[in-house]
């Protein structure tokens, strides 16, 4: 089963990290990611640009384009992982490892329905 691990955190907080702090967190996360990669369980990973760069299309008729993220909340969706796990417990274990590397905020763990890996590279 594929699980999406959606990373939520306070964008103001993450945006207040110094460059060094940011790099330190990314380095710790890379350790967890490398382990998953070696096990062949890690799918696409994305870190999203700040929500200020986002636009939202409301599917009204005609569709309406709004500036900013879909919802204004205290914590924002900042990125996601796709991981291959046998069950929710395993997926939560992965989330725990990631959380130990990058404390604060929350991970929403959600089973993936349709998955198309696609063909683009960064």
């Amino acid at each position: 089963m594929l699980y999406a691990i959606l990373c939520y955190h306070d964008e103001d907080f993450v945006g207040s990290w110094s460059k060094d702090q940011d790099e330190a967190v990314m380095k710790k996360l890379a350790v967890v990611q490398d382990k998953l990669t070696q096990q062949g369980r890690l799918g696409p990973v994305a870190r999203l640009l700040p929500t200020t760069a986002a636009a939202t299309l409301r599917k009204e008729d005609p569709p309406l384009v709004l500036d900013g993220p879909y919802a204004e909340t205290k914590e924002q969706l900042l990125g996601f992982y796709i991981v291959d796990c046998n069950n929710l417990d395993e997926a939560l274990d992965v989330a725990r490892d990631l959380g130990a590397a990058n404390p604060g905020g929350a991970y929403e763990v959600r089973p993936v329905g349709v998955f198309r890996p696609g063909g683009i590279s960064a």
Partner: peptide
């Protein structure tokens, strides 16, 4: 410079539909 960027992003998050604040950032 880094602080200016942080403040600009903050301002833009508060006023998301202001094209000049997008331009500044």
């Amino acid at each position: 410079c880094e602080e200016a960027i942080r403040l600009a992003r903050l301002l833009l998050r508060l006023f998301q539909s202001e094209p000049e604040i997008m331009g500044l950032t």
